[in-house]
Simulated scan of single mutants.
Amino acid sequence: MTSIPRMQIGFLFNHDCIHQIAHTAPIICELVALGQDVSVVTSCDAQERQVRAIIAGCAARVRFIHIDISRLSRAINVVAKAVLPFRRIANLRENVGLFARFDALVVPETTSALLRSHFNLDVRLVYLPHGAGDRAIGFRDVTRFFDLVLLPGTKTRDRMLAGGLVRPGHHAVIGYPKFDIIDMGARPRFFDNDRPTVLYNPHFDPVLSSWWDMGLGVLEWFARQDDYNLIFAPHVMLFRRWLHTSVEHRRIRCRWPIPERLRNLSHILIDTGSTRSVDMSYVLAADIYLGDASSQVYEWICNPRPCIFLNSHGARWQGNPSYAHWNMGQVIDRVSALPRALAVAQEQQAAFARHQRAAFAATFHIEAGGSAARRAAREIVYYLLQDKRAAA
């Protein structure tokens, strides 16, 4: 690939938070190294800062573009954001002319498919899922609108193939670019004691998340005891909004604040959305995972450790691929069962460790000495070259 033609490749980050950035940003420097012209398109300053931090080595060779929406759209968003991602959609619709300049646009989420399905954009769309979880929403028909889908491992690939969401020549397994920028051997410390540390990582979905019906009960229980530390680091979107709408489950719920009495305890760390919530700091620091539907559990099992899952919505999860991760630990359906689950977590881990290792191997393609970001860059360039030859 030393004499390949230069192409214009854009990386679009169009979300309210920064949690998607690490899934595609590591690819940028690899494309620059292949001689490609790369632009980073962001919709807020926090996104640009995060991208620059990740690609510091090549940032000077990358063009940064900030997009925004009209004054009228901003006014509509004040009301509309409660029920749909209006600002994200408006950013796509109002910047189609900019996106049309690229040969390809690389994205970590599926809202961008609207560029093809509704806004008639004739640009190759490259999609890398931001995470490697099991939720049904990650396996929707919208995936078919993407020209190239780059996947973390065989688990996701096989499920997408079975659903007819990807097709030969238009997908590839490349691994997990986020792992390329993480020191997987790090063990951060956040408490000045030797108690086991539990990471509570609820999702934001109004139905699937344990936060709505069990979350405060979990925090209250940890506040009263002195055997464990707790890191409360939910999905960053949970505390981004007061009102959460699930289009998937047709449910709207209001999120209440955390009582002040729980915020200043020496054995509880509460982080509702900092960079540490998305850079695996807490995943690498804790001893026991407590969660529900977040794909972060698959990052957790990079080092097999006990998991406890909260079934707050009465899910019939056995045999359901959308709950496959619940096979990696204990599943409980009430807060009163938590003390016992924690007490036997290390003892029962022996029964779950083999499954966790197998699940990690199926979820993430890893090559010794290899780089997921480099494989992704090569797949993108190869696909675009083939596409141009076919069109000639």
Rank of each mutant, 00 (worst) to 15 (best):
R52C: 10
H267K: 14
H130C: 00
F352Y: 15
Q330M: 13
G370H: 14
L208V: 03
D158M: 11
S112H: 03
R250Y: 07
G291L: 04
H313G: 07
I301Q: 05
V41C: 06
E220H: 13
R224E: 14
A293N: 12
T154H: 06
H23Q: 12
A223Q: 07
A390M: 14
H313D: 09
P168C: 00
V331S: 12
T363P: 02
G370M: 12
N327P: 01
E379F: 11
Y289V: 03
R251N: 06
S43L: 02
N303C: 10
E30F: 00
C17M: 12
C302R: 08
D45Y: 13
L128Y: 14
L208M: 12
A104H: 04
D213H: 11
L269E: 07
R263S: 11
D122S: 13
V123Q: 08
M1I: 06
D194Y: 11
E347D: 15
L310S: 00
I380V: 12
L338V: 04
V126W: 03
T42F: 03
P108V: 06
Y289T: 02
A104T: 06
V38R: 00
N201C: 08
Y383F: 15
W212E: 01
S73P: 08
H170Y: 08
F352I: 01
I174M: 03
I270H: 09
L72H: 10
R101H: 15
L310Q: 03
V149K: 02
R224A: 14
F102V: 03
F204W: 15
L230D: 00
I65Y: 00
G35L: 12
W242G: 15
A324N: 06
R140W: 07
S39A: 13
P259W: 00
R52F: 07
A223G: 04
I4H: 14
A223W: 08
D271Q: 06
N95H: 05
A172N: 05
D122C: 09
V283W: 01
A362V: 00
Q356F: 12
A22P: 05
Q20S: 08
S43H: 03
S39D: 07
P339L: 08
D387L: 08
L98E: 08
V247S: 14
P257Y: 10
F145Q: 09
W212P: 01
S295A: 15
N320V: 02
D279G: 05
T143L: 13
S246T: 10
T363I: 05
R354Q: 14
V207C: 01
F145H: 15
G329S: 07
A337S: 14
N193I: 01
P339T: 08
Q386P: 00
R253H: 09
